[in-house]
């Protein structure tokens, strides 16, 4: 008799693949939101596995703030090529240029909030009826509350107080015209699961996740890359340090970690002993207690 036991990583993988296939079956025009971070990389890889040897039956959509690390863009283009996926880019700079959004000013300016408008415009433009996101429930307290299939009204908004029941593994993607769904196939993976999975599956990552020397500066206890996207005060001195990213977003909201980890095993060791969450270094969450909930209600990722 065989040993019918799945490891937690296999069980979670199987759950994610089930959801990705359910999206392909239930929706007319889904898209996969690809940010360039490790979570969307894992999601992209799972999509590849879910439909292999056929091509992934939906395009990747990248909402580009124009403030991305160069490595992110290079990696994105290579990955799309390797997986044979189609890429659509929604540009925040274009939204600014056409007056759809107004750029924030000042030293703490970020295009993070503006992305929501570009995202909703892009979904509308291509008539996408489901957007796959790489959000995980362990990331943040509002995300901890979200369904796998998360309904959005015609304004793209989430109503956390009135979510649809979601029973067993039965997913209800029915909706009225103009509404859409956000679907989160890796909801149940934790940060540690993601790294373990990357190790197990040997998934190549952007070099930013490994230690490298870089010009950085410190603001409010967070280390940022000294790049043009973030205007610096005169008092903010640039130094060269060995750092890596624990999460990757837009340059303006990605805090760097001092680290010498240059392998996945090192990174896993580092995370196992870390006492702060990965979003502890994200300035977009620090704006208020319910920052994420408010952004999500408005249609954010």
């Amino acid at each position: 008799m065989s040993n019918y036991k799945l490891t937690h990583l296999k069980e979670l993988e199987s759950e994610s693949i089930f959801i990705l296939r359910e999206v392909a079956a239930q929706f007319e025009k889904p898209a996969l939101l690809f940010s360039g971070g490790k979570d969307s990389i894992v999601m992209a890889y799972l999509a590849y596995k879910a439909f292999y040897p056929a091509a992934i039956p939906f395009p990747f959509v990248h909402i580009d703030t124009g403030h991305n690390f160069e490595e992110t863009i290079t990696y994105r283009d290579e990955l799309v090529e390797r997986l044979g996926a189609q890429l659509i880019v929604g540009s925040v700079e274009e939204s600014i240029a056409t007056g759809r959004v107004v750029e924030e000013k000042g030293f703490n300016a970020s295009r993070n909030k503006l992305q929501t408008v570009t995202l909703l415009d892009t979904l509308e433009k291509y008539k996408f009826d489901a957007a796959l996101g790489g959000a995980r429930r362990d990331e943040e307290k509002a995300r901890a509350k979200e369904r796998f299939f998360s309904h959005r009204d015609e304004f793209g908004q989430w109503d956390p107080k009135n979510q649809r029941p979601e029973l067993w593994n039965i997913f209800n993607g029915k909706k009225n015209l103009g509404e859409h769904f956000r679907v989160f196939p890796i909801s149940n993976l934790t940060e540690m699961d993601i790294w373990q999975y990357i190790l197990q599956e040997n998934i190549p990552l952007p070099s930013l996740y490994y230690t490298h020397e870089r010009e950085v500066f410190e603001r409010d206890g967070i280390i940022y890359a000294a790049l043009d996207a973030i205007p610096r005060r005169e008092s903010e001195k640039v130094e060269v340090k060995r750092v890596r990213c624990r999460t990757i977003g837009d340059i303006t909201c990605t805090g760097l970690t001092l680290s010498s980890a240059d392998s996945l095993e090192d990174i896993i060791g580092e995370i196992a002993s870390s006492r702060i969450t990965e979003r502890g270094g994200r300035s977009d969450d620090k704006r208020s207690e319910a920052a994420m909930e408010d952004r999500k209600k408005a249609g954010y990722f």
Partner: peptide
């Protein structure tokens, strides 16, 4: 676990919160 604004204001849980932890034995 009560992470929503309305939950904190009312001191009750409204929707399921999923949380994760592991011990050396299980996840």
């Amino acid at each position: 676990t009560d992470g929503l604004r309305a939950e904190r204001e009312q001191g009750i849980t409204i929707d399921v919160a999923y949380r994760y932890f592991a011990t050396p034995k299980r996840k």
